[in-house]
């Protein structure tokens, strides 16, 4: 059964770069798979290996490159631990552009996910310019809502980058509509009221927020994040979402902390295979 019509994503100006990837997946009657990892963990070079591994085999459809931040209020404990280590090992904002380049060279589409202060300090215009030059498609900003995004809209328009804002179960219908109107690419729907991290069951709020977003604006793809950790959950979410976002579960594959990168990368590839299979059988 498919509750998702495949031909609704027709407005190219709203889809930007990453939304077109999601639209192409929709045309195959499947959800896209979006993978998050932070740059700089276990080290910058090893994180580049991990980003490349996400594109091995069937691979993921979009890669989210997280930039470690000292005060990450939307991140659960798995991501916090990794990003704290990455910071203590010297990761810089500009390393995200190396990661973007590594992903783009593999023919996959990179996005950056970052807390706003890092962009503000780099300079919004300079950040957009350098990300574009590295082959990045756009940016997800978990603590920047459209209300405060005037400067960011200008920079992303100038460099034709996607800007992905978040909606949540607590957002009003009007707020969902205005947030989606401000997005280019797709909208990130947080499916639970909580921070990042794996959960044993997917949230009952997830299909609700997906359908509310679709009702508010059917021309923009909806990605569902927070909590997905295995192929079955991915298949479940793929029934109603245009994209399934996985983060902490992938990061946990790297838990040797660099001591056994080959083993970690094998586990990472295996999980990507499982998730990629999940999003493909979700609507079968």
């Amino acid at each position: 059964m498919s509750s998702v019509a495949t031909n609704r994503f027709t407005d190219e100006s709203r889809l930007g770069i990453s939304g077109k990837v999601l639209a192409a997946c929709a045309a195959q009657n499947r959800a896209a798979l979006i993978a998050y990892l932070p740059v700089g963990y276990p080290s910058v070079d090893q994180s580049l290996e991990a980003f490349r591994a996400l594109t091995d085999g069937v691979g993921v459809d979009l890669v989210e490159i997280g930039i470690p931040y000292s005060d990450p209020v939307l991140d659960g404990i798995v991501i916090q631990h990794a990003t704290t280590k990455a910071l203590s090992r010297g990761v810089r904002t500009r390393d995200a552009f190396r990661a973007a380049r590594a992903v783009a060279e593999r023919g996959c589409t990179p996005l950056v996910m970052t807390y706003w202060n890092l962009i503000e300090q780099y300079g919004p215009d300079e950040f957009a310019r350098d990300l574009k030059e590295a082959g990045g498609a756009g940016v997800i900003t978990p603590d920047l809502t459209p209300d405060e995004a005037g400067v960011w809209r200008a920079a992303t328009d100038k460099y034709e980058l996607d800007r992905i804002f978040l909606v949540a179960p607590s957002s009003t219908d009007d707020r969902i509509a205005s947030t989606m109107a401000a997005c280019r690419g797709w909208v990130y729907a947080t499916s639970v009221m909580g921070v990042t991290g794996t959960r044993t069951t997917t949230s009952s709020a997830a299909p609700v927020i997906a359908s509310r977003a679709r009702a508010a604006d059917h021309q923009l793809p909806v990605g569902i994040g927070l909590g997905v950790s295995n192929g079955d959950q991915a298949a479940e979410v793929a029934k109603y979402a245009d994209a399934v976002i996985v983060g902490s579960a992938l990061l946990r594959c790297l838990d040797s902390d660099g001591a056994d990168m080959p083993g970690d990368l094998d586990r990472l590839r295996a999980l990507v295979d499982e998730l990629a299979d999940g999003v493909r059988r979700g609507r079968a």
Binding site: V73, T145, D147, E148, A168, R175, T190
Partner: peptide, 20 residues
Amino acid sequence: ATGHFGDFGGKFVPEALNAA
């Protein structure tokens, strides 16, 4: 009305908190 003191203040939070 949106919490700004000149260039300062505002509301930089996850959307989940906006309603509250």
